[in-house]
Design a protein around this nucleic acid. Structure first.
Lengths: 349, 349
DNA sequence: GTGAAAGCGCTAACAA
DNA sequence: TTGTTAGCGCTTTCAC
C-alpha cells in the first residue's frame, strides 16, 4: 500500500492524504479522521526512501564501531549503548545504521556515509587520545556526537562521557583506604581515551596517597579474557604481588578471576577486586553480598542521552556543542567494613 | 556531488555516467575510464535513497534483536554475529539496519520494516521454542534467515545455528569421564531455543551415563552475573554440592566464578567449569593452561555465513531454504588428563 | 480545505 | 555507443 493507492481509495489527492497524515493544520478534521482510519486499516507506512528523497533527510543515524583487532570481542558496552540510543530513534522515527569499521578505512566510512546521504548524523565510538575524526567530521559537515572525549582536540564538539578518571580515582582511593598498597591496574589499550582516563584516575589516587606507581603491576592491552588471565598470573608470581586489582571490562575480569582462583587465593577475601565497565563493581570480603550490577545501566542511559543530543543538533545545527559527563555508579559505601592493613598470603601454584 | 552535476562536468548524459559506473557493457572503455576517474576525483557516491527508490531495492538488511528484560545485558554474541555479517554487507554494498525490539511490539517491528521498504531482508535473532516469527515473515514475504532454529515450526525456512545440543552433550560427557557425577547446569531462559538445546544435550549425556538428573542443580534464567552468582552460591550450600559446572554465557560465568571463589574452592581444581558461549571454554586442573578463547570466533563466522545466505536468497527468491549447522569449537582433548573420581572438599563459607 | 504539478537523485526502457 | 524520457513514492510550492 502506497500513498497513491491510499489516495485513490479515499478519492482524495495524494497531497491531502500526505498532509492529513503528517499533521498539517489545513486539513479538515473529518477528512483527517477518515484518512487516518483508512491508513491504519491498510497498515500504510510511508516508504522511507521516498520520504528521504523528497525531504532531503535520511531519517537515520549512523553508529560506527571500530574494531581494532581480530582477537578482541566486540565490546559489550556498545550493545548497551546502542540499545539505549535505539529507543530514542524509534520514538522519533529514525533508523539506526550500524557500521563496523576496521581502523584503516574508518575515514572512508564517515565520508561514504555522508556522501551517500545514508545518515543525518553519526555517533562516534571509541575515541582515541589522538583522534582525527573530530576534524574530519567537521570538515564534511556531518553532525556528530562522540561517546567519549578527545583530549587533544582544540575544536569544540558534542560529547557524552562517563567520568572514567574520577571512577578510577575513587576506586583506587577506596582500595587504599582498605589498607591496600599494591594495587594492580589491568587496563584497556591506552591509546583509547577511556583507558587513558582510567589510568590517570588511578595514578592520581596513588600519588595522593604517596604510594609508588609500579609499572610491573600495570598492564594495557586488548579487552580479552586472555589479557586478564596472563597479566594476573604473572603478577601473582611476583614476590610482593598485588592484593587488589582494578580491572577494565568484565571480559578481562573473567581472566583475572580465573588466575586468582587458580593461585589458590580468594577473590574478595585475600584479594579485593573492582571491575569497571562504566558501572563499577566491587568485590570485597566485608560486603555481605558483594555488589555487582553488570547491567551497564549507565551506558544504556548514556546511549539515550547521546541520541537525544544528536537529534537536537540535527534539528537545529546552529546549536552550540553540548556535552554531558556522567558519574559512574558505585554502590558500595555502607557495606565496606573497617579498614585494616592487607597482608599477603602465601600463593600456591 | 550528484549524478547530474557529474554528468554536466563530463558533458555526458546521466544515463551514460550511470552505466559507466555500474559496469554496463555498452559503454566504451575510454568514456568509462574518464567517468570513473572523474567520479573518484570528486568522491562521487550515489545517493542510497534515490538508488533504492529507482531500483525498488533498499540495499539494506535488518537485524532485529529482542530484549526480553530490562536487567539483562544485550548478549555479547549479537555483537560478534553482527560484526561478521557486517563485513559481508559492506563488501556487497548493503547497509545494516539495527532494531532493538522489546518482545511486545516485535511483530510490528517486522511489519514496519517490510512496509516502509527499509530492508530487503532480515536476520532473526534469539528464536524461541514457540516462535510466531517464521509464520509472520512468510506471510509478509520478507526474506529472512534465522540465527538459531525453531523446533516447533512445520514451515521450512533458512537458518544457521551452532550445535548447542551436541556441544553440551560433549561437554557433559567430558566432565563425566573425568569422574564428575554432580554436574550443575546454569542455563539461559529455556523458552529460548539455544538454552533448550543445551539442556537437551546435557540431559542426553547424563542419561547415557546413567546419572540422575537433579533439578536442584539446574537453573534457567536471564544471562546475568547475578544469576550465575546466586545459583552457584545456593548450590554450593547443598550437602552434596556439584563438583562441576556447565555454564551458558561468560557473563553468567563471572558470577559462577565469584561464588566458587568465595566458597573457598578453586576453579579448575576443586571444581571443573565449562563455559559455552558458542565457543566452549574448559577450566580444569589437568590443563597446563586452561583453554579459553572467548573470541566468539564461531559466532562471528556464523554471522558471515548467515549474511551470505540471506543475500543469496534475496538475489534469487526461488531458492530452496538453506541451513547450516556449525559445530562449537572445543579445543581440549589433548590436555585433559587421567580420569579420576572427583571428591568433594569441605566448603568454607 | 483541496488539488495539480514539479522535483528529490537515481535507473531503465526505448530511441537514435 | 549514447541520449531522451518516464518513473520509483513521497513532499511541497503554488493555485484554486
Amino acid at each position: 500500500m502506497n500513498l497513491k493507492e491510499l489516495a485513490e481509495l479515499l478519492e482524495l489527492s495524494q497531497t491531502t492524504v500526505s498532509r492529513a497524515l503528517n499533521g498539517y493544520p489545513e486539513v479538515s478534521e473529518s477528512t483527517r479522521e477518515r484518512v487516518q482510519q483508512m491508513a491504519r486499516q491498510h497498515k500504510y507506512r510511508p516508504n522511507t526512501r521516498a520520504t528521504g528523497l523528497a525531504t532531503g533527510k535520511a531519517m537515520a543515524i549512523g553508529h560506527v564501531i571500530p574494531v581494532y583487532s581480530k582477537n578482541e570481542v566486540v565490546n559489550p558496552v556498545f550493545g548497551e549503548f546502542i540499545a539505549g540510543a535505539s529507543q530514542v530513534y524509534s520514538a522519533k522515527g529514525y533508523e539506526l545504521l550500524l557500521t563496523v569499521a576496521d581502523s584503516e578505512n574508518e575515514q572512508d566510512t564517515y565520508r561514504n556515509l555522508a556522501a551517500k546521504g545514508a545518515v543525518d548524523g553519526v555517533i562516534v565510538h571509541a575515541p582515541q587520545v589522538e583522534d582525527a575524526r573530530v576534524a574530519l567530521l567537521r570538515e564534511i559537515g556531518l553532525p556528530f556526537v562522540i561517546h567519549g572525549r578527545v583530549p587533544t582536540s582544540e575544536l569544540d564538539y558534542s560529547w557524552i562521557d562517563i567520568n572514567n578518571r574520577r571512577a578510577f580515582s575513587q576506586a583506587t582511593k577506596l582500595l587504599i583506604d582498605l589498607g591496600h598498597e599494591r594495587i594492580a591496574l589491568i587496563n584497556g589499550l591506552e591509546m583509547l581515551t577511556f583507558a587513558d582516563s582510567r589510568k590517570r584516575g588511578y595514578s592520581e589516587a596513588m600519588n595522593a596517597a604517596g604510594l609508588k606507581i609500579d609499572p610491573t603491576i600495570m598492564t594495557s592491552d586488548e579487552l580479552t579474557e586472555g589479557h586478564g588471565y596472563h597479566a594476573t598470573r604473572n603478577m601473582l608470581k611476583l614476590e610482593n604481588y598485588p592484593t587488589a586489582f582494578l580491572v577494565s571490562s568484565y571480559i578481562v575480569a573473567l581472566g583475572v578471576q580465573r588466575a586468582i582462583s587458580q593461585a589458590g587465593l580468594r577473590m574478595g577475601d585475600d584479594v579485593s577486586v573492582i571491575i569497571h565497565d562504566d558501572d563499577l563493581s566491587f568485590f570485597h570480603n566485608n560486603d555481605p553480598e558483594p555488589q555487582f550490577t553488570a547491567t551497564h545501566s549507565s551506558v544504556r542511559e548514556a546511549g539515550v542521552m547521546a541520541a537525544q543530543m544528536l537529534l537536537n543538533i540535527i534539528d537545529d545545527p546552529s546549536l552550540a556543542p553540548m556535552n554531558q559527563l556522567l558519574e559512574a555508579r558505585l554502590t558500595i559505601g555502607a557495606s565496606t567494613g573497617p579498614v585494616k592493613k592487607k597482608r599477603q598470603r602465601h600463593v600456591t601454584r
